[in-house]
Design a protein around this nucleic acid. Sequence first.
RNA 1: AGGCGCGUAGCUCAGCUGGUUAGAGCGCCACCUUGACAUGGUGGAGGUCGUUGGUUCGAACCCAAUCGUGCCUACCA
Length: 914
Amino acid sequence: MEKKYSPSNLEKKIYEKWMENDCFSPKEFKSNYSIVLPPPNVTGTLHMGHAFQHTIIDILIRYNRMLGKSVLWQPGTDHAGIATQIVVENNLKQSGKTRQSLNRDDFVKEVWKWKEKSGNTIINQTKRIGSSADWKRNRFTMDDELSDAVQKVFISLYDKKIIYRKNRLVNWDIKLQTAISDLEVSNIEKEGLLFFIDYDVVDSKEKITVATTRPETLFGDTAVCINPKDERYMHLINKYIQIPFIKRKVPIIQDESIDMNFGTGCVKVTPGHDFNDYKLGEKHKLDTINILNKNGTLNSEVTKDLVDINIHDARELVLRKLEKENRLVKKEKYKTSIPVGDRSGEIIEPLLTDQWFMKMDGLAEPAIKAVKDGHIKFVPKNWEKVYFNWLENIEDWCISRQIWWGHRIPAWFDNKGNIYVGNDENQVREKYKLDKNLKLTQDQDVLDTWFSSALWPFTTLGWPEETNEFKNFYPTNVLVTGFDIIFFWVARMVMMGLKFTNKIPFKTIYIHGLVRDSEGKKMSKSLGNIIDPIDIIDGINLQDLLDKRTSNLVQPKLEEKIIKKTKIEFPDGIKPYGADALRFCFSALASTGRDINFDLNRIEGYRNFCNKLWNASRFVFMTVDLKEYNQKINYESLSLYDKWILTRLNDIISDYKKHFSSFRFDLIAGSLYSFIWYEYCDWYLEIAKIMIARGVDSTKDTLINSLQLILKLCHPIIPYITEEIWEEMHKRNYTPDELLINSKFPLQQKLFLDNAVSMNVNTVMDIINSIRKTRSDLNIHPKMEVDVYFLSNQPNYESIIKENDFIIQNLAKVNKIFWNEKSYNIKDCITITLKDLKALIPIKKIIDVDQELSRLKKNLSLLESLLDKVNQKINNKDFIEKAPSSIIKENLDKKDNIQKEIISINELMKYLSD
RNA sequence: AGGCGCGUAGCUCAGCUGGUUAGAGCGCCACCUUGACAUGGUGGAGGUCGUUGGUUCGAACCCAAUCGUGCCUACCA
């Protein structure tokens, strides 16, 4: 083994070794375990969230592989329709081209080129993190097989009338010129104005005032609505009003949904440009008038002076016109929320268009049931509430998009607008028995990207073919994903899975938190706080980091701020920490359902941990000679400390399994960290040095044996370093297993169940600790040895101390140990009490009696306050009556021990004061 | 408006089913370049667990209220 732990060299080498040995592909089908990767978008590179998610998945995968299961991690990427199209369009812009300047075919070719590049980057990044995915089975949502499956699903749902085409109000993104689903719209709260506008009542001199935030849509009004109970307007029932400027006559209607207390209690109804009004229009059979072109300008339904004006500019113009006619009664400040497209960032307009929809209620019901009946479990459980809430109020899904990149909708139209759905034109003609001369054109639209994602768990496994993988690995075991896509993806996968495979797509949904920056802010390009996981693995200098964070900024004015902040947070750039440290850090931070504030300081601690493990292994290999490992350990003949470390390892294995079943990777990481550092390294290895020096050869066996167990336990979290150390293990013939990744996870052994072992070891440790503390309190130089006089009438102390005197001497720097000998001068001694054991340390200079007294006094008062607490409990009648006996006993023991120690101290203080 | 979280050491977070002298990492202080490791060792300082009330023999943990904070969904003429 190399003397220095340097992750960058060994990680690349080890990954290649796994690939060469084909370690990631399942070799058979028995006790199958599978996870499908949530396919990253081919929009560029992976971020910390991906790295976190991939780490969690890989931990699960590696653990289950080591349990001896046939394991498949199915990887792949998503074409991410709109998102990818935007990226490629932006790239074209750099060379002065636009999507429209190419034709559709050429543009799609450009996107495929980009997909190759981005897809490869993503795969390579995923590999660097250590992901043991089956790369031979890598899939892309637009692969031929997956596209065929998408078509099959579309056609089948169309034939069942679950998919339908309709002219309906949808969210229209003016910038992207496409419909989007309601999930892709965010509402942003903004300070706005509420306008009060007078409309003329027909055949009357009366006016009626409506309140609106969108005066510019008045050209699309097809009614004015009041509450039927509103007495102010009773006399206007069955009358009409006239829309300003265009003088169209529209009815005054009544509906209970109108809030009499808001505004004037009188609402303009614009079914063509407002979702609520659309519903109201359907209910009252109103006309729907569209006043908007698809590019966001007004059409010929408005007054001539406003035609072709952008709708946002039109508001001011309409208000001015209204003012001129004295119709603008007043303006009020009003907080309103504005719909904004997630991808474009532009204001979304409700627009009447022809779109494809999927009818959702029938699909949602079984998806709700699958979770209610416990076939699918959410971890943590509370996310199921979010899931239910959405599914129970689900609306039909607009699945068509007016973009070029994606799965083209398999529908053809004739010139009368009839719809024919099928695999291709020929098949359609056959299916619908169409005349040869009937001209057909295929729908230009593509499907929403989430349509194909919804099929991902089974299409990647070969569905609709009955492949071995589909038969054996579906349903998958766990879906690991973020809460932000429960609606977009998780719920839809459940619905489609149940519909097409009659099975749930996964048994458990593990929802993880979002990775944020160290201040809890979301990592985003525009905030300039993104950290590339690869930069944590390989390191990056400050200049490169600054360049990365400030290139291609949407708002270049933020550059200065980003540079300043980055310089403060990373004055020297980022050091290379290696993938293992990053993974350990993620694991330690993966407490359920909580967002992660990623702090580089923390990762440093875990890199140090890797270094610790590295050096501990080096020590073990340096200590044990090549042929000294006896694989058949005779447990009974082991020393106390060998027994102890194996007992502790057994405990750790049992915790480990428990925590795995509840997905508490943080607890696993924590328990490994503290065990390896504070028990294995700080105590066991130090003791092993002493044992071996005394010729206890069986300790060598335990050194190797315990290190092997440790490596196995650590491997799922830190696969690289453990595999590298294992290489040495195998080289030395200490194990028949060539690769750790394929080795079997340790079983709990039923050894040493008597707790005498750990009790004795704990006593020795307590003794050593208190001597060390006292030495430190008195500033005794670490190298200076002292004598210790132990005094006690407890025979078990005698045997423990006498049997382990060499350990105490060595680890507490003690010269001579005396048992119940009184050849000391109390005035020269510093005293330690431990239950009913006293330890006296004579020090060379005469001690300062007052100082020693005050030291003891301090100790005493601490003990007395503890005793008070315990006494309060024990003297409480209710406590004795109601508390469980084990707790009572615990407290009684505690009282006993404290009292013994107090007595010892009092005795000493008495001696000293005399 | 409704829902879900969060508030514990200077910072980032654990604390599992109510019983601990409330823990970890980083940072801080003192001593130590001891043969695995200074990316280290030994010892230490640092907390009225947001606030108030309640339940309980016993509350960081359960309940209620409240303050602060974050997110999600819906509505908004």
